[in-house]
Nucleic acid binder design. Sequence first.
DNA 1: CCTCGGATTCGCT
DNA 2: GCGAATCCGAGGC
Length: 220
Amino acid sequence: MDDLARLAVLLGGPVVPAARGLLGARLSAGEVTLRITEVEAYAGTAQDPASHAHRGRTPRNAAMFGPAGHVYVYFTYGMHWALNVVTGPDGEAAAVLVRAGEVVAGHAHARSRRQTARSDRDLARGPARLCSALGVDRSAYGQYLLGDGPIRLRPPLEPVPEAAVSAGPRVGVTGAHDVPWRFWIAGDPTVSTYRRHTPRRRSARPGAGTGPSSEVARDS
DNA sequence: CCTCGGATTCGCT
DNA sequence: GCGAATCCGAGGC
């Protein structure tokens, strides 16, 4: 069994080992190739409140229920794409969010799509930046990664030692802060900076007067 | 049908 | 460090 077949087997199993195994793997689209440095594991229905699949199958998350090795992409905040690698057996929802990578080929193409990047290390540092650098969008939905399609996933050139992997809580999720399912290559500069979830304050509408902010009494 | 709010990023302070 | 930008899936009525 070659390395690619081994990767396929790993992706078909439980999501946490699959996530760890994706560290160091290479992801290519067009001219751009990157080495994955940071991932997050998301499980399926009921088991994982942070997962897009936790309320069951919908048209949006359908790919998470499909066979391993395919792409689940979603659009968020009205402007960003994020890429997941589907894992686990067909019919069970699970996926690994690819949060960051080191661009190792096609820098010029990546830079042309990421003109605001201050340096090469920022090209794919963060899930939306990573998609932008690779040119990934809705058209990637459901595509198979281990074949010769437009997006390709390949095993690490060198395995990442267990000792080099750090784990912690997932970024941006409202709950499950005790679940350390974010994995990254320790010390790698392309890993995104961890930010505790900060709820976005909806701008107060005039006269709405709801919420704790109205408790402020200005009596002077 | 309508409202809520997000697995984020960027730019300004 | 904080707020804005900007779309659509999901869920409540």
